[in-house]
Design a protein around this nucleic acid. Sequence first.
DNA 1: CCGAATCCTGCGCGATACTG
DNA 2: CAGTATCGCGCAGGATTCGG
Lengths: 121, 121
Amino acid sequence: MTDQSWDPYERDCPTRQLLDRIGDRWTVLIIGALGDGPLRFGELSRRVDGVSQKMLTQTLRALERDGLVTRTLYPQVPPRVEYELTQAGRTLQGPLGALDDWARTHMVGVLAAREAYDLSV
Amino acid sequence: MTDQSWDPYERDCPTRQLLDRIGDRWTVLIIGALGDGPLRFGELSRRVDGVSQKMLTQTLRALERDGLVTRTLYPQVPPRVEYELTQAGRTLQGPLGALDDWARTHMVGVLAAREAYDLSV
DNA sequence: CCGAATCCTGCGCGATACTG
DNA sequence: CAGTATCGCGCAGGATTCGG
């Protein structure tokens, strides 16, 4: 063994792969919105304020592709589609919830630090 | 009170603010790299594989501005600068570590689901 | 109601070159 | 070693329009 105790962030490490996947503006918010149970397309777009139809569709497709969300089409007219977290998707709720808690606790301080810094410049 | 149990993701909620802040390719990796203790600029750029000088500087400045990282200049030649997590910055290690653990456990499955999905299309 | 397809723009970010 | 300055492209993603 070497004395290298730190495993560096290589380009293809799991952390990077996850970041590439959820590191956009909408994925985390959509997973959060689905946390309470299945939602229809329209309900989702209302809960995630400001998301465009295109990005909502695109993000949901990606989540479905990765096995984190299921898409269920009820063949009726008008069409009804429901999205729901899979088992795997639900395992993300914990880590994401921790981030959410951090945000509620610390973001005020961060914003204050930012203002103070700007004044000092 | 209303029967509205869900607090929607308004444009300025803490979650969104945090996401706007750490939702880029480098911030999370840099905080992770600083988790073991202070590091110099050059050490950081070696640990975070692929980060450009520009993005490393830029991200570190933003972290300093938000009170998550301190920058210490040792006036000697050649110059020596060390970056270190602040108390507030260290409180992020928990939530970020949880995400990291998730990635190590589940990303393989996600990648597999993705491949399966692509084949089925 | 739920999407797909197209067009168009901003700016994130990498590459490169230069300072103290 | 640790930055700053400038240029330029790629592409995420918003607006809009059309289909089932």
